[in-house]
Design a protein around this nucleic acid. Sequence first.
RNA 1: GGGCGUUUAGCUCAGCGGGAGAGCGCUGCCUUCACACGGCAGAGGUCACUGGUUCAAAUCCAGUAACGCCCACCA
Length: 887
Amino acid sequence: MPEDESREELSTVYDPSEVEARWYAFWEGRGYFHADPESDKPRFSQVIPPPNVTGVLHMGHALNNGLQDVIARRRLMQGYEVLWMPGTDHAGIATQNVVERQLEAEGTDRHELGREKFVERVWQWKEEKGGAIISQLKRLGCICDWERTRFTMDEGCSLAVRTVFKELYDAGLIYRGKYIINWCTRCHTALSDIEVEHEDKAGHLWHIRYPYADGSGFIVVATTRPETMLGDTAVAVNPSDSRFTDVAGRTVILPLVERRIPVINDRFVDPGFGTGAVKVTPAHDPNDFEIGRRHSLEQVNILNPEGTINENGGAYAGMDRYEARDAVVADLEARGLLEKIEDHQHAVGHCYRCGTEVEPYLSTQWFVKMEPLARPAIEAVRDGRTTFTPERWTRIYYEWMENIRDWCISRQLWWGHQIPVWYCDDCGEQVVEIEAPKACPCGSANLRQDPDVLDTWFSSGLWPFSTMGWPERTRTLAEFYPTSVLTTAHDIIFFWVARMMMLGLRAMGDVPFREVFVTALVRDYEGKKMSKSSGNVIDPIDVIEVYGTDALRFTLASIAVPGRDINLSEERIAGNRNFVNKIWNAARLVTMNLEGFEPGADVPGDSLELADRWIMSRLSDVIERADAGMEVFNFSMAGKALYRFFWGDFCDWYLELAKPRLYRGGPEERRAAQWVSWRVLECALRLLHPYMPFVTEELWQRLPGAGESIMLASWPSAGDFARDPGAAMEMELIQEVTVGMRSARSEHGIPPGAKIDAVLVCAPGAREVLERQSSYVESLSGLAGIAFSDKPPGEGYGMRVVVEGAEAYLSYESGVDAAGEIDRLARRLAKVEVELERCVAKLASAGFVSKAPPEVVEKEREKERELREKRGKLNAQIAALEGPGGA
RNA sequence: GGGCGUUUAGCUCAGCGGGAGAGCGCUGCCUUCACACGGCAGAGGUCACUGGUUCAAAUCCAGUAACGCCCACCA
């Protein structure tokens, strides 16, 4: 940064907007984000979960990518060669929908445009508008290796897709067939099973009479979708059902359609449900499809792709499916064939992209055989090659993998990877190739490529290696695959994580990632899902503009407890904006007092005071805690430790104790305080950097002796600072006495500015410490001076108070209220009494003394002694105040 | 139907076998030379309920309830 800039006086309020863009450009310009496969550092790699090109940054992204950035920045500082692979996903349906809506607004549609023009149009859209999210990720501070940015439909990823397809096809793991699939009548495409979201809905169970052909009454079936009866080709009963012993083999007349259909036996039928007799619609229900196959039933498709009844629906042809339902029910009722209608709760499937009710639909599609791919993917987790955090996702992964069903991968869309299969119009051969073949093996050039495209998740499933150059064996692949960590929200474990495992193991022969870190979902402050319709969306970019990126990142990271969803509120972000500001101002204090300071030379150990030794000891603790938290993805634990240390220990205590020396200390004292405050601040900034990249860089650069960038600085180690248990104990005493003094002052209304004297009476051990550090207590408690004595002072002193560890006598008369002090002491006494009672009871229990570990018992005894002493002092004080001489 | 998670201060949440914690909010005092996006002090809780294990349970086990989520082809 330019010289004059760093000399500039710091404002009392941190302004993130000015700082963030400047540093991001600096880092990116220096190439810090770029991973070098030739370096000799240890490797760390991760791939971004590619956001949809249509996407805009939401809180889920901010959390997910913010945490990945925390991980990446820490690894970078730890000396790893870090590769964070970025890119976007072509998001088949979502993107096609966006452009289709555009066309609609222009009064046209894709069919009018034609496939080639339409796809061109989508590409054009992608170039212009797609990937806005990339620049948003930069505002978040993400250190992705942008030079490597990929797109699931770029040339390399497309080649990987075709290569994997052919390999699986040649191995017999991809097949084509006519099955019941989930059909979205709005998107006009098949969906895989996991792309269907089930929702319980209040519906009805219609009981319908199907008359026997011989006129001898009827059999009653129950259904939740009466319109599908138009496609019925049988009625099934369970052979063990005594109510229906003789009906199999008979014929019924399908009402409205007047088709003769058989009654059959099938063990699938549950005698306990409905009427025990099931209408069988092989073309519109997966179970019925299976029954139909077992009994060679005809499959009558009654629906058009857009969800209207087709010509097989007779009089109902042309009606919308729901319209047809009403009409069918009305007609049945008119004919006296509707026996009854029951209320019935049942799950209805909806398209995960557009929310339309999905139809089970018979059509010819491509599938991947999953079981052979799932087995190694289960093995890899079982033998620990990949682990999940939190651990409980392991079981959920197993359960899904073990019950996996074949994956429908063909989509009737235009935007996506067109299936690399060509059909010969002459010999009917099906040719699968990586590059478009010129001719069929039969010599014919009349080849037509399959019009369908692949499920978007097919290409996302290859992401960890397709982005590194596969199928070419690149250096990047050799150096950075498998990746170290995959960070993702739990809603795409099945869509994405599971598929990457299966396909990675298949194509690369090794797992795609060593660890999976499953993040929480971000919800609003009431725990509701954020959604546009609820109006409870907090836009990360808005937050960044108001509070700054660092405040947002710190907030998200410090409430990210593994395994629990996050309820985000703006107040919380504001609170952490204040923390960022606190850091800013602490740094101001330190830097404003560094004149004449040379960072080079060490400070002699004997010029360090108690506070100096204490804060460095605390820093050593917090380094350990914060680092341990980050190591196990407990970013909340680490964040809290950092917050407490910086605000609580460093600002509230250490800097207050350093001020007298910084402002008016002798040269040596001043230098020691400068040195320690500088070192501790510098180290704390490095520790905080992964969470708050911008403010830490800005402040770090202003410190003497700073290097090129905090990003290149080393990660702190607990061993950099000495542990000092003695200093910790002494400081604890100082803090207790200080809090006691301040409490007494505050509750008696002694003005904060009133400099008063105090006499302390305390045990020899405490006295030694307090006497040695009396200046600490004086400055922290706003006292003019402290004297020490073995006995209470004479009549000149107005107030006697008890503080933890000592009795204090304050020389302040006016306004002192004996009743108030008695009340204050009585409240403390009550607390002590309760604690003591529990303590005594515990020690009186024979079981405790004999069975609890000795150190626990000893600790309890020590506690009892302390409590008794405290109680004694409090009682004596109260008595003194109540007595004739007291008040 | 199966599974999982949550239930701790007014709110949002940590803690997950040995002294009930944080942030925000609230009350009082303080515009003191880093910060009012601040300082100091304080109020506030039978840790959902019932039973069990243990010398000891917010913490482990079992069950109950409420809320939330995921999976599932009983029409």
